[in-house]
Design a protein around this nucleic acid. Sequence first.
DNA 1: GGCAATTTGTTCGTATGTATG
DNA 2: ACATACATACGAACAAATTGC
Lengths: 250, 250
Amino acid sequence: MGGPRFEPVRAVRAYERVVEQVEEAVESGALSPGERLPSERELMVQFSVSRSTVREALRVLQARGLVRSRPGDPHGAEVLPFTPAALHKSMTTLARVEELSLAELVQFRMVLDSAAILLAARLRTEEQLAEMGRAVEAMRGAVEAGEDAFGAADVAFHDAVVRAGGNKLIEICTDVVRSIVLKLIAERIAEAPDREALMRRSIHHHEEVIAAMRAGDGPLAARLSRKAMYDYYAGYVEECERGALRALLE
Amino acid sequence: MGGPRFEPVRAVRAYERVVEQVEEAVESGALSPGERLPSERELMVQFSVSRSTVREALRVLQARGLVRSRPGDPHGAEVLPFTPAALHKSMTTLARVEELSLAELVQFRMVLDSAAILLAARLRTEEQLAEMGRAVEAMRGAVEAGEDAFGAADVAFHDAVVRAGGNKLIEICTDVVRSIVLKLIAERIAEAPDREALMRRSIHHHEEVIAAMRAGDGPLAARLSRKAMYDYYAGYVEECERGALRALLE
DNA sequence: GGCAATTTGTTCGTATGTATG
DNA sequence: ACATACATACGAACAAATTGC
């Protein structure tokens, strides 16, 4: 006994080492968005691997949203600014293969949104509050204009809220989950009965949320927002799953 | 005017079409975890592309956690069960390049955890409650045993809670963010002063949470859990950022 | 345990269409 | 318009690894 404790070594592919090095350079800031990677031929020299290996590595980096390469580009692959695209992709996959129900997704939104509102009620500036107000105004104007305009204004409101909340992780996850939910009910949302009444009630709810935030009552604002989201989406959720959503309404 | 409205066509690479088809097969259930893909040479015939193209596609699918291929395996690439590995990877990247602060991550955990507890307080079975109790017992026994055992028991507790909450998205995100947080403070957690006092207080908090859940008081249990997490992690968070965490304590 | 067949990992060469200057 | 350098894609080849006999 005693002696050195050796660890099992997993065979690591050549392309993985290339990925690791580029990834490290990007995440450490040595390579910034907008900058370019050397050309594939240059990379195969620097890493002393073949062209195919370089290309496989670039495919993986591209799948992770770190770089983008275009045919014929003399500048080489471009380092991209962070986008939640990869996060979006893996959550979408999760939603499909794990069969996440719409109820679970909406519930997740209710949780994140009310948390953001709770935070925003404390941290918001007057300007941010005004921005939320303008978004609700836009929603009012968009009732006639159609789904897309209304939806865009609604997104603007919630974006303003989560930004005011100051948590980037909440911001990004909210964005990702919202788009997944919208995609799931996109075809049903237009043909919902009482569409206009739903919109007007939603606007009313949003105004109540703003009022509560202005008064500094975060818990109330959060409770109101959960109620608003429940009212808006409950119609699309299976009856038997609404109970779980109502559990968040107190 | 009039005439057909043509849509812009983005040049789609050959490997992407391969990825799309395999991805569709996996997500639709036509290909189940444990099943095998044809060999690379067989795939190049079926898709009528070169082997390099097949391999680039396989690398992307592997990066997304859908398949795994090993050298020499005569059965071809294996279709994997879903793991949050890809989600974990993209969140870790997010944490690094977007410079998520520890405070934001902990805040996110406080939000998800208290939501799960709120749900679990309503939906938990007696058996699940008992499982949480056993986890706390294990924590008590692990105070002497060391960090790892205590941490494992703590994980078991929170796992039992989120499972009882019944939202798989919350479950997975909790798991991902927890491991990121732990990695960030791994080296500091062992050398924290008053380590044992921290553990004992944490155990006490967990017992209070269970009691509140048993009494059916979800909001109280959630509030207690936020407080518990704040107490446990506040020491690792920059002074100036603790305010944002306290905003969740009411 | 050893051996043969097959597969993946990797390299190299070549042809083609494309973007830049 | 042209030349250059690039990414895309194909095909052949060899080494290393795995499976099944």
